[in-house]
């Protein structure tokens, strides 16, 4: 049995008096790769914020497991569209921000931090980008830099919010492969939020589906069934395999086969 990192116990989440999700109970264990999917506005980001501890539950309890005698460290990768870079921070400077917490107040980064930044960029195959302004990078390059920044935090959990949003197909696949590789090679616990079911279906091991007022979690095979998805989305949905990859067809998908 793997060590539990986060436990949601009958949690209700929302803002003010508005409840967005309730009755959420699940556990995330060390070494898991969990996908959190659902349409925009269903409450994925709210659950993510609760996991990260930036909002408190309206009801229930969120417990964090203890690793090496301390609480788990999060490496967060935000939606890159939320970053409005006016100043030309270099990729290296952006990754260095991941070291700021460890540095504490006032202290400046040292050679050890520089080495960690270089290693993190190297880990995501972005060492060649270190001197380039972050704001001038492509979507895929920016995402690599943000993942490197999260890795520079030495996280126990890597939490990614819509990492493939707005990317072309090749960049999307490259980023998903990179995340899978990080999970595989370092046994890093990964939580990935996406509104694209196809994106996560072929990469994660467990899946949580978030719909307005509904939360379902299980292994990918349990969640991705025709009947389950059709009832969840209120329209015919077919789950099929093409060259070993899971493909989700919605609406009139069957007629095109």
């Amino acid at each position: 049995m793997q060590q539990p990192l986060i436990e949601f116990d009958n949690v209700a989440l929302g803002y003010g008096k508005r409840v967005i999700q309730q009755g959420i109970t699940f556990t995330i264990c060390q070494g898991e790769y969990l996908g959190l999917v659902g349409p925009n506005g269903a409450g994925k980001t709210t659950i993510l914020r609760a996991i990260l501890g930036t909002i408190s539950p309206l009801q229930g309890q969120i417990r964090l497991g203890s690793l090496r005698g301390s609480l788990p460290r999060f490496g967060y990768v935000p939606q890159r569209e939320t970053l409005d870079a006016v100043l030309p921070y270099s990729a290296e400077e952006v990754v260095m921000m991941g070291r700021y917490r460890s540095l504490g107040l006032i202290r400046r980064p040292g050679s050890g931090d520089q080495a960690i930044v270089g290693k993190s960029l190297d880990h995501v195959d972005a060492l060649n980008l270190r001197g380039f302004p972050f704001k001038d990078l492509s979507g895929g390059q920016k995402q690599r830099v943000l993942i490197a920044r999260a890795l520079a935090m030495h996280p126990d959990l890597l939490v990614l919010d819509e990492p493939t949003n707005g990317m072309d197909l090749s960049s999307r696949l490259a980023i998903l492969d990179l995340i899978s590789r990080l999970h595989r090679e370092t046994s890093l616990t990964v939580i990935m939020v996406s509104h694209l079911l196809d994106d996560v279906a072929n990469h994660v091991k467990r899946l949580a589906v978030v719909e307005p007022g509904l939360f379902q979690i299980g292994n990918v095979e349990e969640i991705l069934t025709d009947a389950n998805l059709s009832s969840m989305y209120g329209m015919p949905v077919e789950v099929t395999k093409v060259r070993g990859r899971t493909v989700i067809l919605s609406g009139g998908g069957k007629e095109h086969d």
Binding site: T54, Y76, Y89, I106
Partner: peptide
């Protein structure tokens, strides 16, 4: 100048800074 990195981080990405305890 003393808190340059903290101000810079929060101005650049307040959400991630918050997840790190800022």
């Amino acid at each position: 100048l003393l808190f340059f990195k903290e101000f810079a981080y929060v101005a650049f990405d307040s959400e991630t800074a918050a997840t790190q305890g800022f």
